[in-house]
């Protein structure tokens, strides 16, 4: 059987809120090392990769590898019934067709069990090669969210450029143009307010803002976001999940025909 008890249940609620509008159905792959998920959006433009390591759980048991087929909208409905401070336990039998979510209130005076039907999903797993990215930028996740939202009101695509000076986001549309530059700033008080640029080569790529906007639904998971870019490769937008792993989004670039 599989059982995972998560003291900080709100993390799972946040993960679902971040991905439920991008991906419809997906397998949660459970193994003795944790829970992993990989899924594409329906247009095959973006890919989501989630890792929740066993060590981040208060209790974790997985007797054999299980692929739990889940409709994310339905799981989100269930998790919305958990309080933000609740402990969430996931349970599934090896041959079962349901998953149980148990919510425990912080002082243990309310215990709720929600059972959700699983589905059979033929998933296509993609091998993501290790890449030495030309530019890696870490910046406040709220700042990234703000920039992407602001640019979305002006254009449909954004050019993201990284030089040793910083990272720039540009767009254009019927009403005009916009260009935002965030400079490296490592001398701010709080580490989470820093913007850091690691660069091997300047890079500039074009992406659909609609997807970048969708990725920023993960902002609540981490105060910082890391953007990794290389010429003619998908951008990686990564939110680290404290003690547990990460939520990564890969977005295919737009290129000249």
């Amino acid at each position: 059987m599989f059982e995972g008890r998560l003291l900080q249940g709100s993390l799972l609620k946040k993960v679902l809120e971040a991905i439920k509008d991008l991906v419809t159905d997906t397998n949660f792959d459970c193994s003795e090392t944790g829970i992993a998920l990989q899924a594409m959006d329906s247009s095959h433009v973006a890919l989501v990769s989630l890792l929740l390591k066993d060590t981040g759980f208060d209790h974790f048991r997985c007797d054999r590898n299980l692929a739990l087929g889940i409709n994310l909208q339905n799981m989100s409905k269930m998790l919305k019934c958990a309080g933000n401070d609740d402990i969430i336990t996931l349970k599934a039998e090896d041959e079962g067709d349901t998953i149980t979510f148990m919510f425990e209130s912080p002082n243990q005076d309310k215990i709720s069990d929600f059972e959700m039907k699983l589905m059979d999903i033929d998933s296509e797993h993609l091998g993501i090669p290790d890449t030495d990215y030309q530019a890696i930028v870490t910046m406040p996740s709220a700042e990234f969210q703000r920039i992407v939202r602001d640019l979305s009101s002006i254009g449909d695509t954004a050019v993201i450029g990284v030089t040793k000076e910083g990272i720039s986001f540009s767009t254009g549309g019927d009403i005009g143009k916009a260009n935002i530059v965030c400079r490296q700033n490592t001398n701010v008080d709080k580490e989470e307010d820093q913007t850091t640029v690691e660069i091997h080569e300047p890079v500039s790529l074009t992406f659909a803002l609609r997807y970048l906007n969708s990725f920023t639904k993960a902002t609540a998971l981490s105060p910082q976001v890391t953007l990794s870019l290389s010429k003619e490769l998908p951008i990686v937008v990564e939110y680290k999940i404290e003690k547990m792993g990460f939520l990564r989004f890969y977005l295919a670039p737009k290129i000249e025909e």
């Binding site: 091998g127 890969y250 295919a252 000249e256």
Partner: peptide
Amino acid sequence: ALKQTNIKSFFVTK
């Protein structure tokens, strides 16, 4: 004109 690429074209199907 810019063309949206497919994410699958960048990764290997396992």
